[in-house]
Nucleic acid binder design. Structure first.
Lengths: 102, 102
DNA sequence: GGTACTCGTAAGTGACAACTTACCGTTCGT
DNA sequence: ACGAACGGTAAGTTGTCACTTACGAGTACC
């Protein structure tokens, strides 16, 4: 699931679909890669339930699947317990090196 | 940020640190890779503020950095607006092919 | 029915990233 | 001060994955 959104192009496609459902050619037009590459990305996104398909004539309309987003939210919520919030304050106290990057 | 958690080994390290701060050797003992590899993973996790370091004698204690988790939650919350929830109901109506996987 | 779209899949290539071993600096204990 | 433990970095190798071109299948329009 997280692996699916690791790729930048795939994130771009996903965020584009978040703005509204689109066909494959429309997506390919908005992204600097070939149309088959878009299809491959959509397959990955579909496998993890981040997008869904709805056939419409000869075209296939892709849209965001709430299930994937819900799963992602659930995962990160596991690390956002009150326990962690308390730890955040404690971490701020002991200063775990805010050397920021590098 | 999402790229950092894309790797399974890195997720294992991160989830291990979520249980409590640990030193590098402790982490390496709990994961089937060499200690230098752990260091490299920790560097990546630190760059995106998913973990933080606190020197303690000759050892370096790593722990979860709330900033990274907060950023991840913020990202997925962008796709979990009421707008999307409404879209979820609409999607359930038009049935975007619940063919599930493959 | 033929033509023009749509889109998915197959096969092949190139780049990146996750791992290894080897090495060096730093800090604690004696 | 010396030895040992800890851990970060360098260099090199290998597998994986994102992309391309080529092809085939399905649907709509005339």
């Amino acid at each position: 699931m997280l692996e699916a959104l690791a790729d930048g192009t795939r994130r771009a496609i996903f965020e584009l679909l978040a703005e509204g459902p689109r066909s494959v050619v429309d997506i390919a037009a908005a992204v600097p890669i070939s149309r088959p590459a878009v299809s491959q990305h959509l397959r990955v996104l579909k496998q993890v339930h981040l997008v869904g398909v709805r056939p419409e004539g000869t075209r296939r309309i892709y849209s965001v699947d709430p299930r994937g987003v819900a799963a992602a939210r659930a995962y990160f919520d596991r690390f956002w317990t009150d326990n962690l919030a308390a730890f955040a304050r404690e971490a701020e106290r002991t200063r775990p090196q805010r050397e920021d990057d590098r």
